[in-house]
């Protein structure tokens, strides 16, 4: 059994502003990595395109647009713009079906 016996007991704590719930500890969110990795369309079956989506990362030193899911809140996904050197967060935008109907809260 490779799955950990215990659930992940904690994640992280900076403060992110969920467009729905407001400002919360990072700990309420699940990190999902680089938001620039876009899945090829469902019709696309190019191995190279899928490989790039799954494995290639710019891993920038500076502003990073990344996905977080507010797992312990409204469960929305947000794209956070965060500086990987200072950890300063400069944006939290909603993504998903509701993104168009709501504005990023600041």
């Amino acid at each position: 059994m490779k799955r950990a016996v215990a659930p992940h007991l904690g994640t992280i704590k900076m403060r992110l502003t969920c467009p729905f719930c407001g400002e919360r500890d990072h700990q309420e969110f699940t990190y999902r990595g680089d938001a620039s990795a876009k899945r090829p369309a469902i019709e696309n079956d190019s191995i190279e395109d899928h490989r790039a989506y799954v494995f290639d990362r710019a891993n920038p030193d500076g502003d990073h647009r990344e996905l977080w899911n507010h797992t312990s809140g409204c469960r929305m996904h947000v794209v956070v713009t965060r500086n990987t050197t200072t950890h300063k967060v400069t944006g939290c935008e909603p993504v998903g079906p509701w993104a168009k109907t709501m504005k990023a809260r600041s």
Binding site: T30, R32, N69, H77, V95, G96, P97
Partner: peptide, 16 residues
Amino acid sequence: MDHLEYHRDVVWPDLK
């Protein structure tokens, strides 16, 4: 659940 929500929200947000 995370996997499904990711695909629903981020990959195919047009699916209801």
